[in-house]
Amino acid sequence: MKLILSDRPLKFKPENDSFLFIDLSALNIANCVGCFGCWTKTPGKCVIRDDAVKVYPAIAKSDTLLYISRIKYGGYDTVMKKMLERAIPVQQAFIRLVDGETHHVQRDVKPKNATIIAYGDISDEEKGLFEKLVARNALNMNFEKYNIIYSVESLLEDAVNKEVEKWKK
């Protein structure tokens, strides 16, 4: 499955059912409260039953993923970050070693070819930090491959269209 997860509405519409587009800004998603319920009470399910419970299964099932997010302090801004924090039911509490480093065991999460379109007024220093962050995410979110594209806000639609066109080829 191909998934586009955006932190804002876009004019772009999928032409068919070959991929799913989710505008996170249109959903009701609360902050993760760090209760560990999704690991130790209702494993694989968040105890907060809002719109996030529709999103993280889609993240898990996707093998091709496009995240579209504003960048703040070298990381994802609130809308995307909130969803990523709420996606921990896709992992187990248990720990595994990846290249000798400790990480959580993944549940049924497909390995991903991920693209992140990072937009906003992003300095070179912020870009460097964001690249370190996504390298960490790759280990914790099962990215087999990833690519980061930077865009100013005014050209974001073009950047998204260009990326989705590549999926059609």
């Binding site: 993760c32 302090y73 990381g75 609130t78 909130k82 990523l84 962050l133 995410n137 914790n140």
Partner: peptide, 15 residues
């Protein structure tokens, strides 16, 4: 540490 970064609780406060 939350999802490899600062938790949204703190991010929103810093903003």
């Amino acid at each position: 540490l939350y999802a490899d970064g600062i938790p949204v609780t703190l991010l929103d406060f810093l903003k």
